[in-house]
Computed example of a mutant assay.
Amino acid sequence: MRPRMTVLAAVMLALGGLGLAGCGQPRTQPGAQQAAESSGPGLTAEEVRREDATTAWAGGYCAAVSELVRSFSRMPSIDPTTPQQASRTSSELLGVMIGGLDRTIEGLDRLSRAPLSDGERIKAQAVSRYVGIRDRAVGAKQQLDAATTEEASRAAIGSVRAPLEEIGRISLLDGFDAVPELKEASLRAPQCKELTDSRETARFDPGAS
């Protein structure tokens, strides 16, 4: 059990510093204003409208994934004093993470259609990835909650590692850098700037086992 608990402790230390409680909800007007101010000379009215729409969409995307970041700031610590305590607190941790994933998935689903097809593709890939991690986290939590003996608790604790490590490998704005319009929009949108002020907040590192 020691290696597993070491991994969980490393995850908690890494995620504990990611409190972005100040991330706001989509603020289309400020983002649009910034986009208009940053528009270069020679842009047509239609190009400015598209740029504004892309900035607003990117801001909504960042606001949605910020919900996942917020959940990490609220994760409880793992109590390794006994297998039963470790199992119970691991279940609580997964419950918080599942809640964050739910809110992120719901936020992405509520996004209006992206002004460009690459945005829709990136969103669909992100939703699919988050849903998969959520399903595995739910399975691990169910296993923890069903454990009634010390042996079962020890076995269930091992199931916590996979979804946590998957979360650790996520890049929150995966795909944005490969699409110039989205990369630029993420630099203009206030929600994305808050999310990426530190490069470490755009990618979680659970540490090594």
Rank of each mutant, 00 (worst) to 15 (best):
W57I: 02
P80G: 06
T89Q: 07
L116Q: 07
G119A: 00
A45Q: 13
K123V: 05
T81R: 11
S73Q: 12
P115I: 01
V69P: 03
T81N: 08
A63S: 15
L108D: 09
W57Y: 06
A56S: 09
V69G: 02
V131G: 01
T55R: 10
I122F: 01
R103I: 07
E51A: 12
S90V: 06
L108N: 10
S66H: 08
S73E: 08
R74Q: 14
P83A: 04
S71V: 09
F72R: 08
E47R: 07
S117A: 08
V69F: 03
T82K: 02
P83S: 05
I78E: 02
W57C: 01
S128I: 03
R50G: 10
S112T: 09
G119C: 01
R110Y: 01
T104P: 08
L93V: 11
A126S: 08
P41Q: 04
L101Q: 12
L108R: 11
G59N: 07
R103F: 03
R129Q: 09
V48K: 11
I98L: 13
L43F: 10
T89L: 10
D118Y: 02
E37T: 12
A124C: 03
L93R: 06
M97G: 05
T81L: 10
A114P: 00
R74W: 08
S77H: 11
A124L: 06
V131Y: 07
Q84H: 14
Q125F: 05
D52T: 13
I78Y: 06
G100H: 12
